Amino acid sequence: CEVIELFCDVDGTFPNHHPDPAHPENLQDLVRCLQETDAELGIAFDGDGDRLGVVTKDGHNIFPDRQIMLFAQDVLARVPGGEIIFDVKCTRNLAAWIRQHGGTPTMWRTGHSLVKAKLRETGAPLAGEMSGHIFYKDRWYGFDDGMYAGARLLEILSRSADQSAVLNALPDAPTTPELQLRTAEGENFRMVEELKRTAKFPGASDVITIDGVRVEYPDGFGLARPSNTTPVVVLRFEADTPAALSRIQNDFRRAILAVKPGVKLPF
């Protein structure tokens, strides 16, 4: 295939944009290249090449949780019943997709070292997280390798005439980007522990506390978890409809303000 390179000269100052493919603003040059050339697919890597970003010909960002769907479908065709690991920030459509294709979904804590350790513990053939770390144990060595994941993506998509159609057909839902509630050092952990202890979420079907508080509803989910690296509470919301998304955010707004009155929320 023909490859059009963008910003492939090594420069640790990153003069073009921040090298994080998890954020759509860092993929705009890739989107423009797809619009202006005959290229059919855009692939982006972070600064050390262990995370993958994907953009379709029509400019849609295929977030890592949807990438994992495609990878899982392919792996489970060879490993029936295989365990697929993903982190708490991923779409709720992912677990259903894994079951639909004969696999066993396992939600786990965010953090590439934590996900890699879980893969090693379970022997799962595939793991991934919302930040773009993809871990292949199937035909590979079980570590996060963005370039290898990109090669596997090309292998899968080479079987179809319309790569964008395959990617755009993966289940999707209205969702927020990763939101950050800034706190004092250490306060993010205290806030989330208090949410675990006291918050009530009427209408929830499940409350998962393996990493923060992830509240599952029949029509969506909300997440509040303390970042492991910076003093922020990470928030993410997803729902079947915009109205459901707003309702779930209101539940979290009420719960967070009960723990920390007057705090400025990012939603």
Rank of each mutant, 00 (worst) to 15 (best):
I62W: 00
S164G: 14
A44S: 13
F135I: 15
S246P: 04
P64D: 09
D29T: 08
F221G: 01
D58Y: 09
D251Y: 04
G203Q: 10
I98R: 05
H17G: 06
R214D: 07
N16H: 15
V232R: 12
V263F: 04
F7E: 02
V259C: 14
M130V: 10
D138N: 10
D172L: 00
D251N: 15
V115I: 15
G262W: 03
D29I: 01
A161M: 12
D50V: 04
D38K: 13
Y217A: 03
G128T: 07
S205R: 13
V54E: 04
K118S: 00
I256D: 05
D172E: 13
A169Q: 10
D144N: 09
A149F: 06
D172M: 03
G262D: 03
D206I: 03
G150M: 12
E121P: 07
R197E: 03
P177G: 03
G49H: 14
A44T: 09
W97G: 03
L154Q: 04
W140M: 07
G212Q: 06
Q67R: 04
L154W: 04
F252L: 04
G142H: 07
M191D: 06
L257M: 11
S131A: 05
A96F: 05
S205G: 15
I43S: 05
A124K: 11
I248H: 02
K196M: 13
R99C: 09
E40H: 07
K200W: 00
M147I: 15
F135C: 12
A22V: 07
A151P: 05
I256H: 05
P21C: 03
G142S: 11
D144Y: 09
P15N: 07
E216R: 05
V192W: 06
V75N: 04
D74E: 13
L30N: 03
D145G: 12
I4T: 13
A95H: 09
H23K: 15
L167V: 02
M191I: 15
G47A: 15
L167Q: 02
V115L: 14
R92F: 14
S160L: 02
V213P: 01
A22R: 08
G42R: 03
R182V: 14
G146A: 04
L126R: 04
D172F: 07
G82T: 08
H23Y: 11
A44D: 00
G103W: 11
L157F: 01
R253K: 15
F86L: 00
D251L: 12
V213Q: 02
E83C: 13
A204D: 05
D38P: 05
T198Y: 01
P242S: 07
F201E: 02
L257T: 08
R99D: 00
H133M: 10
A77C: 12
S164L: 02
D50E: 05
V31Q: 10
A22Q: 11
S160T: 09
N228F: 09
T198P: 13
A165M: 08
Y136M: 07
G53A: 02
